[in-house]
Design a protein around this nucleic acid. Structure first.
Lengths: 192, 192
DNA sequence: GTCTATAACCTGATAGAC
DNA sequence: GTCTATCAGGTTATAGAC
């Protein structure tokens, strides 16, 4: 891996672990093994490097979600597979985490990838739920957009509760609760 | 308001806005109008002051939740009132926010009030849901604990999505989606 | 209780040699 | 491309006068 790539990867990890405010150029240099001169050769400064790292995290998150949603099978199963996908719940979401960083939210360039990631994710999930309604798999009483927003919120909030309790099981518990509610909204019971 | 109280209040605000890592003693002193000497007279240092501020936020959050849950009326209505209570969704949750602060999570003293706040909140809500089931207001197919965890997660995740979109409406949308799911799980329709 | 002085280190960069 | 030197200001205190 070349120096530029190592800088981005190290920044990605540090943003995930400590956020933008908590991540110093010095820490990035130490983790990546790059010197001060290298960092400022490849990037204009901390915001520029952070932007590259945030975009990389956003792209990866989107790709993972798409992969789960594109699986074959019934809609509810795909949603469940996405929510129950293997995750390190205690680490939290690398993109959602950034919403708590005042310096990221204050900079339109840094905020844009975060905003777009959740807009696309929620939109894609809403489309999937509407598809389920068209197939008769889900009741038509639900608003696909509001339901999708609630489901994504359970994910993001599940991370918060898991970290608060220092227990990944709390995340799974929240997801179970959400999926049970979704199942109760199905017009007929289907095999799980 | 005396100096000690002003120091705690200023720290509360700054922890909410910028987190623990992003809050410096200097910023606390400037906002509170207290000098360096004052701050170190009343508190041993940043962690000690943060602990007092975190406890104050946790106490306030708990009191607000209890007030909503203790209202008269049907269970679903009380839950809806809690979720829809007037909030500044873009500011996020002053306690949930702390789960993203590595220095807070790493210190057992600082983490304890955060953990306890969510444990109590989820437990109380689960009790309320169980009460609704006993009254026949809610279907008995749901696990009260998992449902309560999911609902609190919608709250916390709703803040994340609202901040990502820079729109408080996204929070309301997530809550609407969750309440619609809960309503769909009710054995019979009741006035909203 | 509050004030100023001091300190050792960190932050986020710029400059220029190699 | 990478290195070291340098810098103005911030961080998180401690010490002691008032």
């Amino acid at each position: 891996m070349d120096t530029r790539r190592r800088l981005i990867e190290s920044t990605r990890e540090l943003l995930w672990e400590r956020g933008y405010v908590g991540t110093s150029p010095k820490a990035i240099q130490e983790r990546s093994g790059a010197g001060q001169g290298s960092m400022y050769h490849h990037f204009r400064g901390k915001p520029d490097l952070a932007l590259a790292a945030i975009r990389a995290s956003a792209d990866e998150m989107r790709a993972r979600a798409e992969a789960a949603f594109d699986e074959p099978g019934p809609v509810v199963g795909r949603v469940a597979a996405y929510l129950r996908r293997e995750r390190d719940a205690l680490k939290g979401c690398p993109v959602g985490r950034l919403t708590q960083d005042p310096d990221v939210m204050a900079d339109p360039k840094l905020r844009a990838p975060v905003e777009e990631t959740f807009a696309r994710l929620t939109g894609r999930l809403a489309g999937l739920l509407a598809e389920g309604q068209a197939d008769g798999e889900l009741g038509t009483g639900l608003d696909p957009s509001a339901t999708a927003t609630a489901l994504v919120a359970v994910l993001q909030g599940g991370y918060v509760l898991a970290r608060a309790a220092a227990s990944a099981e709390v995340y799974a518990h929240a997801v179970d609760g959400a999926l049970a509610l979704l199942a109760a909204a199905a017009p007929r019971e289907e095999g799980r």
